[in-house]
Design a binder for these strands. Structure first.
Lengths: 129, 129
DNA sequence: TTTCGCCGTTTACAGCTGTAGTCAGATCGA
DNA sequence: TCGATCTGACTACAGCTGTAAACGGCGAAA
């Protein structure tokens, strides 16, 4: 397996993830614009957003590009990679790496509605081909 | 129903979860026995296990029963409930509550092997009936 | 009865996380 | 030119987490 010379996984916290979602949806953005998108929903203030952005930059998950006197922020870490990594980590930690066990759990907890089931079936058919 | 032990979900950390897994597998156990099961694998020492057990008791996830001069520990929180809750939380947080998106992600990351797929198909057939 | 060892409890402490205040420098408008 | 702003940087701080040492009581062995 790829022992990745790349960057260490560098965990992203939940608050940081909220910032990433904003940037994944639209970028590059200035700090103030990120705040517009997220401060209301989470009850944060500008300083909070700035701190989180700075931490993300320090972790290499977000890049900056100067724009006059301010910075524009762009995600470096890709959404797919992040979600994939988190999902696998979770399946690993909670279900011993067996995705089927996760599926069984969700089914058991009735967390799957008919649409979910239909879509998962479609995905499986696709995988098979 | 029973009076709310579950009003507040009372998050369980990863280290605490390792302890819970030991107790779910076998209980009741004394602290020393828990350590036997987990100290080697995680490189922990007795004090660490004791701290984690104490925190779990404080959170109401584990109950104690006196056994001579020591305590025996038994899980109160059930494994199914814990896994279900964690799974749903994760699907909520990362995939906007759409389990199918999680599966698409796992499929995309090639985290599903043939056995997983076969088992999920079997579960789907079961659900259908 | 005195001491030793085991057990749970208390205390410790550094790193991460959530949340935010303050500050110094750049810049735009007057 | 000079202050009002805006921006990122630095600082702060409490709570949670991982990890563990120190303490104090109680029963067993001597």
């Amino acid at each position: 397996m790829t022992e990745s010379l790349d960057q260490a996984p560098e965990r992203i916290s939940e608050a940081e993830h909220a910032i990433m979602e904003v940037l994944w949806a639209r970028h590059p953005l200035a700090a103030a614009e990120v705040c517009e998108d997220v401060c209301g929903a989470r009850g944060w203030s500008m300083p909070t957003v700035k701190t989180l952005l700075a931490r993300l930059v320090a972790k290499g998950a977000v890049a900056t590009e100067p724009d006059g006197r301010r910075f524009l922020y762009t995600p470096v870490l890709e959404r797919e990679a992040y979600l994939g990594g988190e999902s696998r980590r979770m399946v690993e930690r909670l279900f011993g790496g067996r995705p089927a066990a996760l599926f069984a759990q969700l089914a058991d907890a009735e967390a799957l509605n008919n649409d979910d089931i239909a879509e998962i079936e479609r995905l499986l058919r696709e995988l098979r081909s």
